[in-house]
Every structure is written in structure tokens, then in C-alpha cells.
Amino acid sequence: MNWLLSKVEELSGENLYACYQCGKCSAGCPMVEEMDLLPNQVILLVKLGDESVVEAKSPWVCAQCYQCGVRCPREVDIAKIMEAIRLIKLRKNIDHIKLENVEKNLPQIAIVSATRKYTG
């Protein structure tokens, strides 16, 4: 097993081999238009050990809406996989955004969420 896959499985608790690439997750994903990789492609690339997924747009645009997970026929929770990929970067103490640059006067809820998803 490549290190990326084992790390993602460890952090997400999900079995990526359960995925049979039906694409249902991507079909229902509300953020898919903003993504460079479809959610099912993200899964495939992790299985192939392609580390470029960490810097791809998709994990960072994923809004943790859980739509993919509730629709997946194989009960793969893709939101958890996206989180695991984000954490691979964030846990190296590399932030994805600079908090100082976040627009001022957003509701607290947006700022707190951003700190949780984009800073380590």
C-alpha cells in the first residue's frame, strides 16, 4: 500500500478499496464545478499514490456537505477522505490560507470554519 493511501485511510477511517468508481458522489457534489478533480477521481489518485491531490483544488473546495457520503452505494464517506487529504498538508504546519487575508467582518461562523479547514 502506498504511503498516501495508508495515511488517508488512517486519518479518515475509510476503506478506499470499497469504491468501485461509479461516480455517484461526483454527480451529486454541489461544489464539483469548482473542482479540478472529481471526487471519485480524488479517490482513484489516492489509491494510485499520486501526491498531487494534496495541492489539487478539490479537497480545499469541498464544503463538507456530506452529500457524497449519504449517496455512495458503497458507503464510502468521501468528506472524510477530503479532510484526511487537507490534514496531510495542514499537519506539516503549512496553512492553506493566510488568516490575516481573510475578508473582514465575515460572520464568526465563517471565520471559525475557515480556521478549522484551512489552518493547521
Binding site: 464544503a63 465563517a110 484551512y118
Partner: peptide, 9 residues
């Protein structure tokens, strides 16, 4: 989804 915390980034 409304895009959620994407509003910050």
C-alpha cells in the same frame, strides 16, 4: 450546499 466556509477562501 450553499458553499459554506468557501466564503472565506
Amino acid at each position: 450546499c450553499c458553499g459554506s466556509y468557501n466564503v472565506a477562501s
